[in-house]
Design a protein around this nucleic acid. Structure first.
Length: 743
DNA sequence: AGCACGCCGACT
DNA sequence: GTCGGCGTGCTC
């Protein structure tokens, strides 16, 4: 290297490479910016913000040598550098998820105004001089400031607080009784008190809390990155008091001067949750999610970096905040699919939380009533610690589960509510109790067929069938969102009135329920029926409060709100999710039916769940009916191990997409022939489409799966593989990972 | 990811 | 004859 100091910078471009820049002494008199510094750099014809990764010449993956003449950096931003543990996390997360490092690093710079110094504002406070004369208005101003001690107020706030006009303060300032100063615009976060209002814990909670606190204490006592890290799975059914337990862990972090991050899958839940934490710790913690304003993001980003933000409640993206001394990460509802980030960088936030904790020497705490298979396996094998909370009320709260064998007791053709379920529903109606009929299928009917010619409607852009949405008068593709008006006549043969809806959707089920129980108030709950999230919440609340007798719902009803009046749940088609060939179909079906069944009944009045199935002997259905979660997880884990699927390895996919089916398929075969990296490569396709070549939005796609041992260097292997058979002829190639836990 | 370069269709 | 479509390739 020649020509003065240079640095390697991670830039937000999808290239597996660092970019070298000159850091000339005239621009950087104190030496080149240190690792972690945020810098502005010229790139192509424009400029972009990146993160200094090390001295120039560092190679992160990239093969080609940097050019002889380096462009100089433009400037260093006025923000604290990303701490070393965060950089380590970014590098490992990028490698793990096959994401270019700069794209991962970008997630840590997502706060506005990082280029500018922390904003200041003018404040007035008591000055050394005495007022030239006293008036009642002036006295009120001085009283307000005296009550604040040495602190100041902005001119506007001061006038408002004192109930005077701005000119009063101006007069006092002119005679030296008030002093105008500059102060940080961002108010500090209120201090949290770990002992403000400790919860009363049951013996089981207290025991779990003790262990959770010990894990945090262990992390806090160790040097960062020196063995303090641990992961704990906190398992306990709804109502067992998991939250109180992990808040004890948060209290321990607070008491030891470490920061805590609590991750939630749903942003909508944070408001209520913040209230709860405010009650526990005496003040509300900071919140980080997509709905937080720019000013608040800037404030929180800097407060995380300074350590002033003691506790942060956040969504996925909070994982990339520059915490100064993180001691604990809690992942609430760790099994939730919402933790998967699937656009841009691909990652599973639960796994990245564990990774971040390991980089920070912090404790990770995963909480769930129904743990994901991955976490359960990790707890079983001893990689994670495990804490279990027993049901607070004993087994009586669990609803009684019974199967309705559709082969024997099924409904008439074109009907979906079997006689035993109809009878049970009628009984609830007579008793003034609510029934939930669960069917995880939106719309009126999943298939529309012409009875005259057999024509059925397919999406023009993909392989999926169009679903009739009678309420909207549309045919809709559930895969890509394509919608078209519902025709009156068959477009193929022209026959009018011969189009037949085939199969059930919730709209059709609601129709049937209304006909079956004419005296009942039937409510339909589906993501299509409400105007927006707020309207939907209001609707759910109204129904839960007794606004309906029979609730028809999709998976939407499985989560969140409680239905205290509900004593019967009917699962219309338990077999629905099991047939679609998806890797996680069984797991999802088990969790969904278990969650939705659990909605029946309450402590003093156990409910009933009737599971309609045509395959009661299916192992998954049998496990559901027996309430045998452990058995299900054990069997599912063994099956996946036999199939070599996650969580027993890493899986990546090369996705080829092109405008032409033959060319796309040929490129995929060439890639497969080029010799797979590491282990076998096959043209297996996962996902909803049944064919090896799927059509999505008019383009053809093939997924080649790559399986690798957990610790294998997948990134370079994939690069070499793709270099051996680069796609041609308009075919594009993207590498995708299945964002799941293999940690 | 942006952004420029480059080679084929319908317009003043 | 040009404006502009988006396919391809590069960014220290």
């Amino acid at each position: 290297m020649s020509g003065g100091p240079s640095v390697a910078v991670a830039l937000p471009v999808p290239v597996d490479r660092l970019f070298d820049y000159a850091a000339p002494a005239d621009l950087f008199p104190g030496g080149p910016p240190p690792p972690g510094a945020l810098v502005e750099a010229p790139l192509g014809s424009g400029r972009t913000v990146g993160v200094v990764w090390g001295p120039g010449g560092a190679s992160w993956g990239g093969a080609s040598d940097p050019p002889a003449a380096l462009k100089p950096l433009i400037r260093a931003l006025e923000a604290p550098p990303l701490p070393e543990p965060l950089r380590a996390f970014i590098a490992r997360a990028a490698d793990y998820t096959l994401t270019p490092i700069g794209m991962m690093a970008r997630l840590a710079c997502r706060a506005p105004g990082l280029g500018e110094p922390a904003p200041e504002r003018a404040v007035l406070r008591l000055g050394p001089g005495a007022p030239d004369r006293m008036t009642p208005a002036r006295a009120r101003v001085l009283d307000v400031l005296a009550a604040l001690g040495g602190a100041g107020l902005s001119p506007g706030d001061l006038a408002r607080e004192a109930g005077v006009s701005a000119s009063v303060a101006a007069g006092l300032e002119a005679c030296g009784a008030l002093l105008r100063e500059s102060a940080p615009r961002d108010a500090p976060y209120p201090a949290l008190d770990p002992e403000a209002a400790p919860a009363a814990l049951s013996p089981a909670q207290a025991a779990a809390a003790l262990a959770a606190r010990a894990a945090v204490a262990q992390a806090a006592a160790a040097q960062p990155g020196a063995g303090g890290f641990s992961t704990t799975l906190l398992q306990g059914v709804t109502g067992s008091g998991k939250t109180e337990v992990y808040l004890e862990a948060v209290a321990e972090a607070l008491a030891r001067g470490r920061q805590a991050l609590v991750m939630l899958p749903e942003i909508a839940l944070t408001a209520a949750f913040l209230d709860r934490l405010a009650a526990r710790f005496g003040a509300a913690p900071a919140a980080w999610h997509s709905g937080v304003s720019g000013a608040e993001r800037r404030r929180l980003w800097r407060a995380a970096a300074s350590g002033a933000a003691q506790v942060v409640i956040g969504a996925r993206s909070a994982l990339f905040l520059p915490f100064a001394r993180l001691g604990l990460i809690v992942v609430d509802e760790e099994h939730e699919g919402a933790y998967k980030q699937e656009d841009g960088a691909l990652y599973h936030a639960r796994d990245m939380a564990v990774l971040r904790a390991s980089c920070e020497g912090a404790a990770a705490l995963l909480a769930s009533a129904t743990p994901s298979l991955e976490s359960w396996v990790n707890a079983e094998t001893g990689r994670y610690r495990r804490l279990t909370l027993p049901d607070r009320y004993g087994p009586a709260t669990l609803p009684r589960l019974a199967a309705v064998d559709l082969r024997r007791d099924g409904p008439a053709r074109g009907r979906w509510i079997a006689p035993p379920l109809a009878k049970a529903t009628a009984e609830r109606l007579a008793a003034g109790e609510q029934t939930l009929l669960f069917l995880n299928r939106r719309g009126y009917a999943p298939l529309t067929v012409c009875r005259a010619c057999g024509h059925f409607f397919e999406c023009p852009d993909c392989d999926a069938r169009l679903v009739e949405h009678r309420l909207r008068g549309k045919l809709v593709c559930h895969q890509c969102g394509h919608a078209e008006p519902q025709p009156a006549a068959c477009p193929s043969c022209g026959a009018a009135d011969r189009l037949a809806a085939t199969g059930p959707g919730v709209e059709r089920l609601a129709e049937e329920a209304a006909a079956l129980f004419p005296q009942a108030r039937v409510a339909l709950l589906s993501s299509d029926t409400a105007a927006g999230p707020a309207a939907l919440r209001a609707q759910i609340e109204e129904i839960a409060g007794g606004g309906a007798d029979v609730i028809i719902g999709t998976q939407l009803v499985a989560k969140g709100h409680n239905f205290p009046l509900l004593t019967l749940v009917g699962v219309i088609d338990a077999d629905l999710g099991l047939a679609n060939g998806d890797l996680r179909a069984a797991e999802r079906t088990f969790q969904l039916i278990r969650q939705v069944s659990g909605r029946a009944g309450r402590a003093e009045r156990p409910g009933l769940a009737l599971i309609q199935t045509a395959a009661p002997e299916h192992p998954v259905i049998r496990a559901i009916l027996a309430g045998d979660e452990e058995g299900f997880l054990r069997r599912e884990a063994a099956e996946r191990q036999a199939a070599g699927s996650p969580p027993f390895g890493r899986m990546a996919a090369a996705i080829l997409s092109g405008p032409d089916e033959a060319k796309t398929w040929e490129a995929a075969r060439a890639l497969a022939r080029a010799g797979g990296p590491l282990e076998a490569v096959g043209a297996r396709l996962f996902g909803p489409a049944p064919a090896p070549v799927a059509r999505i939005r008019g383009r053809f796609r093939v997924r080649l799966l790559v399986k690798a041992p957990r610790t294998a260097p997948l990134q370079p292997a994939l690069r070499a593989w793709i270099a051996a058979a680069p796609p041609r002829g308009g075919v594009r190639l993207a590498v995708d990972v299945d964002p799941q836990s293999f940690l």
